[in-house]
Computed example of a mutant assay.
Amino acid sequence: MPFDRPSLKDLINRSVADIESRLDGADASLRRMLLNILAKMQAGSVHGLYGYLDWIALQGMPDTAETEQLERWASIWGKNRKSASKASGTAIFTGTSGSVIPANTYLKRNDGFEYETMAEAVITDGSAIVSIEAVQAGVESNTSVGAVLRLPSPVAGIQSTAIASELAGGTDVESDDDLRGRLLARIRQAPHGGATFDYVQWALDVPGVTRAWAYPRELGDGTVTVRIMTDGLTIDGIPAAESVAAVQSYIDNVRPVTAEVIAVAPVAVPMNPQINLTPNTAPVRAAVTAELSDLLRREAIPGATILVSHLREAISIAMGETDHALQTPANNITHSTGQIAVLGTITWGDL
Rank of each mutant, 00 (worst) to 15 (best):
M271K: 04
Q42A: 13
L307Q: 15
P207Y: 00
D4C: 11
I315M: 04
I56A: 12
V261D: 03
V16Q: 11
E166I: 07
V224R: 04
T334F: 12
G25T: 02
A268L: 03
N104F: 10
G95K: 04
R211S: 12
L53N: 12
R186S: 14
A128Q: 03
T171Y: 04
Q136S: 11
A121C: 02
G181Q: 15
D27L: 06
A103K: 13
A282V: 13
D27A: 07
G95N: 00
Q248K: 08
P62F: 04
S336L: 12
S165W: 02
V224F: 09
V173S: 10
D231P: 04
T105W: 01
T67Q: 12
L30A: 09
G78Q: 05
K108L: 14
I158A: 08
P152N: 05
I123A: 07
F197W: 10
S160Q: 12
V247H: 07
P329I: 09
M1R: 12
L179C: 06
D176Y: 02
D205A: 13
N110C: 05
A84S: 15
V100Q: 09
L277F: 01
D177Q: 15
E133V: 14
E116G: 09
T67S: 15
T67F: 00
I37Q: 10
G51P: 05
A259T: 13
P256R: 09
T258N: 15
T171R: 09
L351E: 10
P270S: 06
E133W: 01
I37S: 10
N272G: 01
T234M: 05
W202A: 04
I123G: 06
N272F: 02
V206C: 06
A162Y: 01
I333W: 10
G338P: 03
L38W: 10
L219R: 14
S29W: 03
W213H: 03
P266F: 06
E68Y: 09
V135K: 07
G181W: 02
H192S: 15
P239E: 08
G78R: 05
A304E: 14
M319N: 15
E242C: 03
V135H: 00
Q59M: 13
E140R: 11
T258Q: 05
S131R: 14
S141D: 01
P154S: 14
W348L: 01
A314M: 05
P270C: 05
E321L: 08
L307P: 00
I317P: 07
K86M: 08
D221I: 13
